[in-house]
């Protein structure tokens, strides 16, 4: 019984770590592929939300119900508060500079 739980836990840790890797990878591809500063800010926030989210969930599962696990949850909370603030600051700075967002049919690509 205990063995089954331990195996499930290791499996879940692996799944979470892989999901975290996957979303970080998507985010990286997005930053390279997307056309302008605004759309890149979208995908940069993906790495923080689900990339770091699943990564920290894997960490919390690994260390278990103790100080470090609790702290990783707190870490996630602060990432969720600061990440949109940073993305907004970048987008707002671009907007105030007068950078027109890229749309379909724009030849600036």
């Amino acid at each position: 019984m205990m063995d089954a739980i331990a195996t499930a836990r290791v499996g879940l840790i692996a799944v979470f770590a892989l999901l975290g890797l996957f979303f970080s990878f998507v985010s990286m591809v997005g930053v390279i592929r997307l056309p302008d500063v605004y759309s890149r800010a979208h995908t940069a926030s993906q790495a923080d939300t689900l990339g770091a989210g699943f990564g920290l969930a894997a960490v919390a599962l690994t260390v278990g119900w103790e100080g470090a696990g609790f702290k990783s949850v707190l870490l996630l909370f602060f990432i969720f508060v600061t990440n949109p603030t940073a993305a907004h600051a970048i987008a707002r700075a671009a907007f105030e500079e007068g950078i027109v967002p890229w749309t379909e049919g724009d030849d600036r690509r």
Binding site: F80, P84, A87, F95
Partner: peptide
């Protein structure tokens, strides 16, 4: 505004009073 930005695909660019400019 933070919830909108956290959700991928929408990004709050400006807030003017109660007008949100969202990309």
């Amino acid at each position: 505004a933070n919830s909108i930005t956290l959700t991928p695909g929408t990004l709050t660019v400006r807030a003017r009073d109660s007008d949100l400019y969202v990309h």
